[in-house]
Design a protein around this nucleic acid. Structure first.
Lengths: 190, 190
DNA sequence: GCGGCTAGTAAACGAGCGTATACTCGCCGA
DNA sequence: TCGGCGAGTATACGCTCGTTTACTAGCCGC
């Protein structure tokens, strides 16, 4: 008999749903929307393919729920205005060296084929990153400056993905801080 | 009879090959490798699908030839060291507002699924952008600084693609120049 | 004038995708 | 004890993808 305790999971709808959501978060973050198949997600979550459709309606529905559930960079954006460049730089430096634990930003760089997904991503980037930064900045061209900082932020992710991670030195973080200050128009030099 | 002169093209292997190459260059640049199908390319080139396989071996072979045939940003990178930030800024500003005529850079941002394509893109980015900039800079951490500038460059493309084009003001170009100076460690301030 | 090389064509192949359907089986209240 | 509800499953459907194969038709040297 050997007992063969393959820890038969109890049938738990909520838990299975959560496993799918978590697996999707990881995979979408790492590979982008189009590259991830529902079979990959189901396999990673150790669940059946059909459950994706059952619990989330469709692949794009699952992606939308993943996107909506991400706290994203709120902690970075929220805070005092003067410290924003340094917080952005430290977060970006984190992204340069190793995978961040909030993978959704990476999926922003990719995932562009499906117009529905594109709209989701665009809206999310707007409301979670661009608008908060612009609001914190204030001023007439706040959006332009927020946009430039966002560009630097996304670009760092692109480069890491394209040519591999690299651990930045403290001097690099300082330089990056200065770059963000410049982008945001928050130069602190006398 | 009506003659029906549907301008029957002369059968010209070289010309057809060139049309396919050109269509692929446009489409890959605009949508990235994975999003473009060989049917799209053949249709845009007004050629038969099978000719892609016949003339280029495969879709990835065609992509490789497109990649190899691009002059890319050589004109921007080559030149005096002091002027590099401004040249980069002007080129990047061009990218912010409307589509550049060398679309291959955009495909660098995307196209990540197939490992073979990823290797092609990585190698190309290295030899055409990163290495020339690092060589122009010199110094111990030249690669780190070149990498940071590349990140800004790619990020601007990502943002344009994600949230639409925006025409930068001359002041924005100035700011961008300062950003590149900072990234490259070429601060010219006294 | 004509046969053969070749550019170009039409159609199909197998694989993989997202999705939908019909089913099995374990648990829980009556 | 047992009937049914629902979580989980196996499988198939329709589609599109990259690729391949068998074919058609025009030009060029003889």
């Amino acid at each position: 008999m050997e007992a063969q305790v393959t820890d038969a999971r109890p049938r738990d709808r909520a838990a299975t749903r959560q496993r799918l959501l978590e697996a999707a978060r990881m995979l979408f973050g790492e590979y982008g929307y189009e590259q991830v198949t529902v079979r990959m997600i189901a396999s990673a979550a150790d669940a059946n393919i059909a459950l994706v459709g059952r619990y989330f309606g469709s692949k794009s529905g699952l992606f939308g729920e993943v996107l909506a559930g991400e706290p994203t960079v709120r902690a970075v954006v929220e805070g005092d205005r003067a410290g924003l460049p340094r917080r952005l730089a430290e977060y970006a430096a984190e992204r340069m060296s190793h995978d961040p634990e909030t993978p959704i930003l990476r999926s922003l760089e990719r995932s562009a084929g499906d117009p529905e997904i594109q709209a989701l991503v665009r809206e999310r980037l707007h409301t979670v990153v661009l608008e908060p930064i612009a609001a914190l900045l204030g001023g007439p061209d706040a959006h332009v400056r927020a946009r430039m900082a966002t560009a630097v932020f996304l670009g760092i992710g692109s480069v890491r993905r394209l040519i591999g991670p690299e651990t930045p030195s403290p001097a690099d973080v300082d330089r990056l801080t200065a770059v963000f200050e410049l982008c945001l128009g928050l130069e602190t030099r006398p």
